[in-house]
Measured scan of single mutants.
Amino acid sequence: MAEQVALSRTQVCGILREELFQGDAFHQSDTHIFIIMGASGDLAKKKIYPTIWWLFRDGLLPENTFIVGYARSRLTVADIRKQSEPFFKATPEEKLKLEDFFARNSYVAGQYDDAASYQRLNSHMNALHLGSQANRLFYLALPPTVYEAVTKNIHESCMSQIGWNRIIVEKPFGRDLQSSDRLSNHISSLFREDQIYRIDHYLGKEMVQNLMVLRFANRIFGPIWNRDNIACVILTFKEPFGTEGRGGYFDEFGIIRDVMQNHLLQMLCLVAMEKPASTNSDDVRDEKVKVLKCISEVQANNVVLGQYVGNPDGEGEATKGYLDDPTVPRGSTTATFAAVVLYVENERWDGVPFILRCGKALNERKAEVRLQFHDVAGDIFHQQCKRNELVIRVQPNEAVYTKMMTKKPGMFFNPEESELDLTYGNRYKNVKLPDAYERLILDVFCGSQMHFVRSDELREAWRIFTPLLHQIELEKPKPIPYIYGSRGPTEADELMKRVGFQYEGTYKWVNP
């Protein structure tokens, strides 16, 4: 592979701008107003304001973009700056750019259920340069409990009458099928589907988006991507930290609602779906819905739930269990780990287990898709061969690698495990991989909904998990304890083995 010439960040961002501006969906010269509902909250200060700053800094926003914060707290732009700027990672050389960014910011205080507050917000936006005809993007960085009041008031008082209007809704989209349907029906009564952007930030990850290209742009994968060759698929999300004093919020939802029903299920769809007619948003989402419709409700015998306990040999936070978090209700049975087996009941995947695993306070930070292939028929190497695996590593250190057998150097035919490896950090030294939120917010500006969740996708996802969630809430089974920093409950490994996964433990990928 030829040595790549190092590029400056300015040059890299210039390439990104060229890609972005050559499309006809990006209205570079139009006025846009980006409204952050819930501007005083954690999500706004840690993710949304920093993301908008990065896009502005790199010249990736339309030229005439204004940012308006809205929340109940009586704040000023200076207050917003004070709480969000520490997350910007701005350099001293960017000081003038930073001043320009905050000059485009404003803030309006108001209630979430008060019509007069929204009329005041609308008047404020109209007073901005060309504000009355601007395109408006409303980001709901809010708890779902206020979605209905907020969307109703936005629709009645704050819509642009000339430009387009788009609304970005953060997960969780309800707690179960019934609450999700209620919320979807409410929002759909106010906005068209092409105006609604239900954001799952995992769909903005580079390697998640790469799944489609790997599958449908490489001839070698087509013939082997089926039940005849693939023994099982494992989708993993692991965090090495616990709730760390923020367990009160987590306890309301648990690990299945927080990660599995959305992030992991979306990745499953991209692995299992048929080739779409095109890369058009609805063509892709149509195929994802077909996959979900082929999955039956989760069966309790295919589920393992766990909850982390303190590690007596650990240090600091590792010595504390979930129930030691003062914000967690006493005696909570909320799971911090889950392993679930699903089956896609169609011709391509009949009988292939899709194993979804996620948890907190585990032994490493990792998100990946792992396809394990069947054993080689007619073994001539005296059971020395391990199964081939194709691994798409989402985070950290984005990579695609194939675990395969090669001859060990020497005189004899002794096979050993090795890999074919594409590590993004080595291959793409001159490429700026956008943060997931950067990519998705740019998608909203461009009107691309491919990486957002459609209402029928959402409904099918909740259909699969709601009976299990209701059973857990009714019966309150005690989750299996696992030690902070471990791989999780051993019962999860036993479940995976029972459905056909072979864990060798003899080879570990190392970032080159």
Rank of each mutant, 00 (worst) to 15 (best):
152 K>W: 14
145 T>V: 13
151 T>G: 04
117 S>I: 07
232 C>Y: 05
87 F>H: 08
95 K>E: 11
151 T>C: 10
204 G>W: 03
153 N>G: 15
137 L>A: 09
217 A>C: 11
86 P>T: 11
183 L>I: 10
155 H>D: 10
222 G>H: 06
185 N>F: 06
9 R>N: 13
211 L>S: 01
131 G>L: 13
68 V>Y: 07
64 N>W: 14
181 D>M: 11
129 H>N: 14
186 H>D: 09
195 Q>C: 15
201 H>P: 01
215 R>C: 01
59 G>K: 12
153 N>D: 09
91 T>M: 12
195 Q>K: 06
228 D>E: 12
20 L>W: 05
22 Q>K: 06
172 P>T: 00
214 L>R: 00
36 I>T: 03
111 Q>H: 12
68 V>R: 02
33 I>E: 05
14 G>T: 07
100 D>N: 12
80 I>C: 06
222 G>R: 05
120 R>V: 09
58 D>W: 02
145 T>I: 04
37 M>C: 10
226 N>M: 10
194 D>Q: 15
35 I>K: 01
79 D>C: 06
30 D>Q: 14
89 K>C: 13
193 E>Q: 02
152 K>C: 06
142 L>T: 04
126 N>F: 08
123 S>G: 13
188 S>C: 10
198 R>A: 02
59 G>Y: 05
66 F>E: 08
146 V>C: 06
42 D>I: 03
234 I>P: 03
171 K>F: 01
237 F>M: 07
175 R>M: 15
10 T>K: 15
241 F>R: 06
95 K>D: 05
227 R>N: 11
58 D>G: 08
163 G>I: 00
26 F>P: 08
30 D>S: 10
105 N>W: 09
7 L>W: 06
46 K>H: 04
181 D>L: 13
113 D>K: 08
237 F>H: 09
220 I>A: 14
130 L>S: 10
156 E>P: 07
86 P>E: 11
84 S>E: 10
234 I>V: 13
182 R>M: 15
168 I>F: 12
202 Y>Q: 03
208 V>D: 00
188 S>R: 13
201 H>Q: 01
115 A>L: 12
18 E>L: 07
169 V>E: 03
132 S>Q: 08
249 Y>V: 00
49 Y>P: 01
218 N>P: 00
183 L>R: 01
244 E>L: 12
143 P>M: 04
252 E>P: 12
143 P>D: 02
